[in-house]
């Protein structure tokens, strides 16, 4: 409920981010009536209000409100690496990411926006096109609740495929740990940016993935490839932190170059704060484009 009081309404007025809560300045085809105006020659006779004409013997054209909808597609990483959660008591990255996606989906659907979902590991696993339906939330939550069974992540291949699946322009929320080689990532993300999508990236990491806070020597096992490495964390920590910082810096570079809004969250952060941050975040550049009304308006 708290989220309703946030400033999302204000932020998305222009493009109808919060469709249903605010009016579009454009009128068009819609079920909601706005006003009458006098018929002038050249107007589509289909929009004449025959009942008013019969009553008053004057021609009036009905004007309707054109509802603008946000089409938001969540792309959630279902690979094995997302299953990392440090100790058993910690929240797994996958749980965190799925909860985040579900919360946003619920929120957007409540605003009557069309929400879709794509899950991927090295390929696209599921794709639910963005829709506004009564049971869409249920479908999405159902998909998100299934345990990730993916193996290795191949972000680029999955994104390339998704770019062809997501048709109309809209918002893309990409939830992943981005622990994958990023050589081709820029090109893949460019497919979305070029298509006019508002891409927002949420990189979910576990605190231990950031500070490598292990004590005892152990056999470290890669959750995706199964490869194991005998390590003394004390010796490996410095180099690890260095490398992951470089990786994250490279990612940030790619995102800013593409004008992509990115969030780096760790699984210990309270979810509400992250959502607040997400909703408050302005797009990196003006990629929100007005949707052209297809409805005819009377002059």
């Amino acid at each position: 409920m708290e989220i309703k009081s946030l400033s999302l309404r204000a932020r998305a007025v222009v493009e109808g981010f919060m469709s249903g809560l605010h009016r579009s300045p454009r009128t068009g085809f819609s079920t909601e009536f706005t006003e009458y105006r006098q018929y002038s020659q050249g107007d589509d006779v289909r929009f004449l209000d025959w009942k008013v004409m019969a009553r008053t013997d004057r021609e009036f054209i009905k004007k309707f409100e054109d509802e603008t909808n946000l089409r938001c597609t969540f792309m959630v990483d279902f690979s094995k690496s997302m299953e990392f959660g440090g100790d058993d008591s910690d929240v797994k990255k996958s749980d965190y990411g799925r909860t985040l996606a579900a919360s946003l989906a619920w929120f957007l659907l409540q605003q009557r926006d069309a929400v879709g979902l794509a899950t991927f590991d090295h390929d696209v696993r599921e794709f639910i096109p963005p829709r506004y339906r009564q049971d869409q939330l249920k479908t999405i939550l159902g998909r998100l609740e299934t345990q990730p069974a993916g193996q290795v992540t191949d972000l680029c291949q999955a994104l390339n495929k998704l770019a062809s699946l997501v048709g109309k322009r809209g918002m893309i929320v990409l939830v992943s740990d981005f622990l994958t080689p990023i050589a081709d990532l820029e090109r893949s993300l460019n497919l979305f940016s070029a298509a006019g999508h508002d891409v927002r990236v949420v990189q979910v990491l576990h605190p231990r993935e950031l500070d490598f806070d292990f004590e005892d020597a152990a056999i470290f096992e890669d959750m995706e490839s199964g490869r194991s490495l005998v390590l003394d964390p004390g010796l490996a920590r410095e180099s690890y932190i260095e490398k992951i910082k470089a990786h994250n810096a490279a990612l940030d570079g790619i995102f800013s170059a593409q004008g992509i809004t990115s969030f780096r969250v760790n699984t210990t952060e309270p979810m509400e704060l992250v959502l607040l941050r997400f909703l408050q975040q302005q797009p990196a550049k003006a990629v929100v484009r007005q949707r052209r009304s297809t409805g005819r308006t009377a002059a």
Binding site: F84, D177, P181, D222, M223, L231, L235, A236, Y240
Partner: peptide
């Protein structure tokens, strides 16, 4: 002499092999 405990980790891409103490 080998560590007995196993630790699953998201990705080993940033880790280099070290000599166990």
């Amino acid at each position: 002499d080998r560590p007995k405990n196993k630790q699953a980790f998201g990705s080993l891409m940033f880790l280099d092999k070290t000599k166990p103490p």
